[in-house]
Amino acid sequence: MAYVDEAGFMPQPPNRSAWTKQGETHCVTAKRGQRLNLIGAMFSSGKLMLAKLWRSVTGLFFFAF
């Protein structure tokens, strides 16, 4: 038996929203960087298994892990 989970990390957080004073033009430059994704499994024996990916983790990849 194993417990599996995935998490992603970015050095630059995404710009999801911003405040702009009334009458001013809203302008936010979105910086995009690579995202590091980690998948880990902890087995009932206490052993750990990890995978680090600099790409998107699809459901198929997660299932294959």
Score class of each variant (00 low, 15 high):
residue 63 F to L: 12
residue 38 L to G: 10
residue 27 C to T: 04
residue 18 A to C: 06
residue 17 S to K: 09
residue 9 F to Q: 14
residue 57 V to K: 05
residue 11 P to I: 04
residue 60 L to C: 11
residue 49 M to D: 12
residue 14 P to S: 03
residue 25 T to C: 00
residue 24 E to K: 11
residue 33 G to W: 14
residue 65 F to Y: 07
residue 51 A to F: 06
residue 36 L to R: 06
residue 11 P to K: 07
residue 54 W to N: 13
residue 57 V to D: 09
residue 6 E to A: 11
residue 64 A to L: 07
residue 23 G to Y: 01
residue 7 A to L: 14
residue 26 H to N: 06
residue 38 L to R: 15
residue 49 M to Q: 13
residue 65 F to G: 03
residue 42 M to R: 02
residue 37 N to T: 00
residue 25 T to G: 02
residue 44 S to K: 06
residue 1 M to V: 06
residue 7 A to G: 13
residue 42 M to H: 00
residue 23 G to T: 01
residue 35 R to W: 11
residue 42 M to S: 03
residue 20 T to V: 01
residue 37 N to G: 03
residue 6 E to K: 09
residue 3 Y to L: 08
residue 38 L to P: 02
residue 33 G to H: 15
residue 22 Q to C: 07
residue 4 V to K: 14
residue 15 N to G: 00
residue 50 L to V: 06
residue 33 G to D: 15
residue 64 A to Q: 13
residue 58 T to L: 02
residue 64 A to K: 12
residue 44 S to C: 05
residue 12 Q to R: 15
residue 51 A to P: 00
residue 21 K to Q: 08
residue 46 G to Y: 01
residue 28 V to S: 00
residue 49 M to A: 10
residue 54 W to E: 15
residue 26 H to P: 04
residue 1 M to T: 07
residue 17 S to T: 04
residue 27 C to R: 07
residue 37 N to H: 09
residue 17 S to H: 05
residue 32 R to F: 13
residue 2 A to M: 05
residue 37 N to P: 06
residue 17 S to L: 07
residue 61 F to I: 04
residue 62 F to S: 02
residue 18 A to I: 03
residue 26 H to M: 03
residue 3 Y to C: 04
residue 58 T to W: 02
residue 43 F to C: 03
residue 52 K to A: 12
residue 15 N to L: 06
residue 64 A to H: 08
residue 31 K to V: 10
residue 58 T to S: 11
residue 16 R to D: 10
residue 62 F to W: 10
residue 37 N to E: 12
residue 30 A to N: 15
residue 12 Q to G: 04
residue 11 P to R: 12
residue 63 F to A: 09
residue 14 P to V: 02
residue 56 S to M: 11
residue 22 Q to M: 07
residue 49 M to S: 09
residue 2 A to Q: 07
residue 40 G to L: 03
residue 47 K to Q: 12
residue 1 M to Y: 11
residue 57 V to T: 09
residue 51 A to N: 14
residue 36 L to K: 04
residue 40 G to R: 02
residue 49 M to L: 11
residue 59 G to P: 01
residue 7 A to V: 03
residue 29 T to L: 09
residue 54 W to I: 10
residue 6 E to M: 06
residue 64 A to W: 11
residue 2 A to G: 01
residue 8 G to L: 10
residue 36 L to H: 07
residue 12 Q to H: 14
residue 25 T to S: 04
residue 28 V to W: 02
residue 19 W to L: 06
residue 50 L to D: 09
residue 4 V to C: 11
residue 6 E to I: 00
residue 54 W to M: 14
residue 34 Q to L: 12
residue 39 I to Y: 01
residue 10 M to G: 10
residue 35 R to E: 07
residue 16 R to C: 07
residue 39 I to D: 02
residue 24 E to A: 03
residue 23 G to N: 03
residue 45 S to L: 03
residue 13 P to E: 00
residue 49 M to R: 12
residue 57 V to F: 07
residue 53 L to H: 12
residue 44 S to F: 08
residue 41 A to F: 01
residue 57 V to L: 11
residue 46 G to M: 05
residue 5 D to R: 08
residue 5 D to T: 05
